[in-house]
Lab assay of single mutants.
Amino acid sequence: WKITIYDQENFQGKRMEFTSSCPNVSERSFDNVRSLKVESGAWIGYEHTSFCGQQFILERGEYPRWDAWSGSNAYHIERLMSFRPICSA
């Protein structure tokens, strides 16, 4: 599993790669995730830290803005603060 997060939209700004769970992006000096690329595996992104709040399934691909992973939710969530890989047995 591999995911790359960015602190600006369209894959700009600070970037960081992960191959395992991140319970709080702010502990990695990110205020928020504004864009991301899922390089391999599937991940679950969460609205809040500690894997809480609205969940987003993140499959392999590029997500240049928050609405790319938020989709058409009843209330739009511009925040992604934690994530972890989906492990299959």
Rank of each mutant, 00 (worst) to 15 (best):
I3S: 00
T4G: 02
Y6I: 00
Q8H: 09
E9V: 07
E9I: 08
E9M: 05
N10M: 07
F11S: 02
Q12T: 11
Q12D: 05
G13T: 01
K14H: 09
R15P: 07
R15Y: 14
R15E: 14
M16T: 07
M16V: 11
M16G: 08
F18C: 08
S20C: 07
S20A: 12
S20F: 05
C22R: 01
P23M: 09
N24D: 15
S26Q: 10
E27H: 08
R28Y: 07
R28F: 11
F30C: 04
F30H: 02
F30L: 08
D31Y: 08
D31L: 08
N32E: 10
V33I: 11
V33A: 09
V33P: 04
V33T: 04
R34F: 03
R34H: 04
S35V: 01
L36M: 07
K37P: 01
K37A: 04
V38Q: 02
E39Y: 10
S40V: 08
S40K: 09
A42P: 12
W43R: 01
I44G: 04
I44D: 00
G45N: 00
G45R: 00
Y46E: 02
Y46T: 01
Y46I: 00
H48E: 15
T49G: 10
S50R: 13
C52F: 10
G53E: 02
G53P: 02
Q54I: 04
Q54K: 13
Q55V: 04
F56L: 09
L58E: 03
L58H: 03
E59Y: 13
R60N: 07
R60T: 14
R60D: 08
G61S: 03
G61E: 03
G61H: 02
Y63I: 09
Y63K: 00
P64R: 09
W66L: 08
D67V: 12
D67K: 08
D67A: 11
A68T: 11
A68K: 07
S70D: 09
S70A: 08
G71W: 08
G71P: 13
G71E: 15
S72T: 14
N73E: 14
A74D: 14
A74K: 14
Y75T: 11
H76Q: 11
I77R: 13
E78G: 13
R79F: 07
L80I: 15
L80Y: 00
M81A: 09
S82L: 01
F83K: 01
F83T: 02
R84G: 02
R84N: 04
P85W: 03
I86E: 10
C87A: 13
C87Y: 13
C87T: 15
C87N: 15
S88R: 13
S88W: 04
A89P: 15
A89I: 13
